[in-house]
């Protein structure tokens, strides 16, 4: 079971994503932005950070990296892909997920442990969670406000494609308190909070984040 983790110039959280894959008993494989070869991985994590310095728009340049064209093709073929924070922004820019992430409503960079509700436990990345489970996951972003036009929001709600929602006060002005969404086939998930930072009580606020990585391993074993 191989989970690829992409490193772009400016990526920060690839090491923690690799560690999370290892915790879930998967074999992490480092993928380089300039290499279009996915090296036989079964799933891909696009981790957080500031790819290309967030120049132009968050994720706007990363989406054109050689590795991303392979990821887009693989995702269209059903490969599970998880975008975390900057990775979520990249997947939106790449068109794998609808909507966009814009500057937080009050302009503050938000860094805190955030409660989320799991709204959809049928995606490739969330089957280990009970429906409606509340999980504690670090959030650290300045451009994490999820926006989409009303028709897209209605479609996401109608199809149950909102995967994670902020519990309590909305930290960044996201429409409908949305913290994470999924693709129509439930294989691609993006979220702003960082489950890879919550895999061990020694180093995070909880180990709630592990559920995502165990879930994808389950989905690959079952495939």
């Amino acid at each position: 079971m191989k989970i690829g983790v992409i490193t772009f110039p400016g990526t920060l959280d690839d090491v923690d994503a690799i560690r999370a894959a290892r915790y879930a008993d998967a074999e992490p494989v480092s993928l380089w932005h300039a290499d279009a070869d996915l090296h036989g991985v079964d799933a891909v994590i696009v981790p957080g950070g500031f790819s290309y310095g967030d120049y132009l728009r968050c994720g706007a340049i990363a989406r054109f990296a050689p590795v991303m064209s392979s990821v887009v093709d693989a995702a269209k073929g059903g490969m599970p892909v998880l975008g975390i924070c900057n990775g979520f922004q990249i997947l939106c820019e790449a068109g794998l997920l609808p909507g966009a992430l814009v500057r937080n409503q009050k302009l503050h960079f938000v860094c805190r442990d955030q409660w989320l509700r799991v709204e959809n436990n049928t995606t490739a990345w969330t089957t280990r969670f009970e429906p409606g489970a509340e999980v504690l996951i670090p959030l650290k972003s300045g451009e994490g406000s999820y926006v989409a036009d009303q028709a897209t929001l209605d479609e996401l709600e109608g199809e149950g494609r909102v995967v994670f929602r902020y519990v309590g006060e909305n930290p960044n002005g996201s429409r409908a308190d949305i913290a994470g969404v999924t693709s129509a086939n439930g294989r691609v998930v993006g979220l702003m909070p960082h489950p890879e930072h919550a895999i061990d009580a020694l180093t995070g606020p909880s180990d709630d984040g592990l559920g995502l990585f165990y879930s994808v391993v389950d989905s690959l074993v079952g495939a």
Partner: peptide, 14 residues
């Protein structure tokens, strides 16, 4: 330019 319906917190701060 940000679309009219998109909140522009930077413009608001200015």
């Amino acid at each position: 330019m940000p679309k009219p319906e998109i909140l522009d917190p930077q413009g608001q701060a200015v």
